[in-house]
């Protein structure tokens, strides 16, 4: 693999194929954990670690795993790495473990990880898969950080727990509550749409190409398509 293309694999994950803002994967932790910037960073790092390890392992085993049972195999591998990360976080960052709560074990069913395993790691070498994992992980972390920054500053008047003058006297507390999560996420996607003139999201209306469940799913042509569920 040439140097320039490995750089582009890394950058794709951060910008062009940002998992949260362009591919619209991993929405659950994005919405739930962006009330505080520190939680967003913690979740981002945990997911990046799992993504890196699972991408490398799946890429290394891609010729060994039979095609028919690949999804269960991926899930077992991912669940293993999630357990490792869970134990590490519990041991070394207990307060983070408490605030991430149920979302930490739920990294197993995070679409980003299974999606990258299916879309990238099962077709590419270990080096490229590792870079893809890191790029996607950083993209996920940055997008979550951006959203958490907006929600924490406007919603609570703090950033990483530090009070911000003016905002801490006038917090718009609904932004820190669940409705604010949906709202800010919608706004951010609209901004990305505007910036890319609608190119980024156009192809992605929950089509089957990017759906991790596509392999096991009975519907064809996307869950959203008219009359597709037969």
């Amino acid at each position: 693999m040439k140097k320039s293309s490995s750089l582009s694999v890394l950058l794709d994950g951060i910008i062009k194929e940002n998992p949260v803002l362009v591919l619209i994967l991993g929405t659950c932790p994005t919405l739930a954990l962006t009330t505080q910037a520190s939680n967003a960073i913690g979740m981002g790092i945990a997911a990046t670690l799992v993504l890196l390890c699972s991408n490398m392992a799946i890429s290394a085993l891609r010729k060994v795993i039979p095609d028919n049972v690949r999804i269960p195999c991926y899930i077992v591998l991912i669940a293993g790495f999630v357990t490792v990360v869970e134990m590490l976080v519990e041991a070394y960052a207990y307060s983070l473990y408490e605030s991430l709560g149920i979302y930490l074990p739920l990294i197993v069913v995070n679409c980003i990880i299974l999606g990258r395993a299916e879309m990238f790691a099962s077709k590419n070498g270990i080096g490229a898969s590792a870079l893809d994992g890191i790029g996607m992980g950083i993209g996920f972390t940055l997008a979550m950080l951006a959203m958490a920054t907006i929600r924490e500053i406007f919603g609570a008047g703090t950033w990483f727990g530090m009070p911000i003058p003016f905002f801490c006297d006038n917090p718009i507390s609904i932004l820190a509550q669940p409705p604010g999560g949906f709202f800010v996420y919608g706004l951010l996607i609209a901004i990305v749409n505007k910036a890319t003139h609608g190119k980024a999201i156009k192809k992605k209306d929950f089509g089957c190409d990017d759906c991790p469940s596509a392999a096991t799913c009975g519907m064809t042509g996307g869950c959203n398509k008219e009359g597709s569920a037969v």
Binding site: G186, A190, N193, G198, D205
Partner: peptide, 8 residues
């Protein structure tokens, strides 16, 4: 508005 169409 165009940029809000769909998911946003």
């Amino acid at each position: 508005p165009k940029s809000f169409e769909g998911l946003p």
